[in-house]
Amino acid sequence: MLHTFVAYVEDKPGVLTRVASLFRRLNINIISLTVGRSERTGYSRMTIVAEASDQAGHRIRASLYKLEDVAEVDDISGISAVTRELALIKVAANAENRSGVFELAEVFRARIVDLAPESMMIEITGVESKIEGLIQVLNERENRVLEVCRSGKMTMRRGHHTSRVLRAMGVSSEPSASDSDRNVLPTVEEPE
């Protein structure tokens, strides 16, 4: 089955290798991996999607926790969550066949973010199937798909936030001064 893990890891050199190496060692292919800064200074947030046996989830989570640089791991396979992916798609388009791409972008709630004499770039966010749907429709047109860049999945549980790290560290999840210029929204605390 498809497993999705969210991990808070220290923002240090080598951490990605340690996490990736754990999956490599178990001979599990990582299907999608996104890493970026999180609401907590010094910690990155990873969303890892991997295909593994039903029972593997517990062991992967427990093993991730054994890595010194990993602060928190959430296994959100089969849990109500919002999952998004971002894609940039460059298609061949000239003055004659541009308008069709605009229409498609409209239907898919995508945006045109670059327009050149011979090409256009589409930015689309959504679930995997939506992005694949757009690519498929584009391929059916005369606008050849020239390049596709996909971010991989990002996932967040619905409702209350899950960051036990913050609670464990006894810090408020309010953004600090240094965070504010990074446009971090305050997270919702779980009512205790």
């Binding site: 029972q55 517990h58 062991r59 427990a62 926790y65 054994k66």
Partner: peptide, 8 residues
């Protein structure tokens, strides 16, 4: 003591 050993 090692949770990763449970049910391994």
């Amino acid at each position: 003591i090692d949770p990763a050993e449970i049910n391994k």
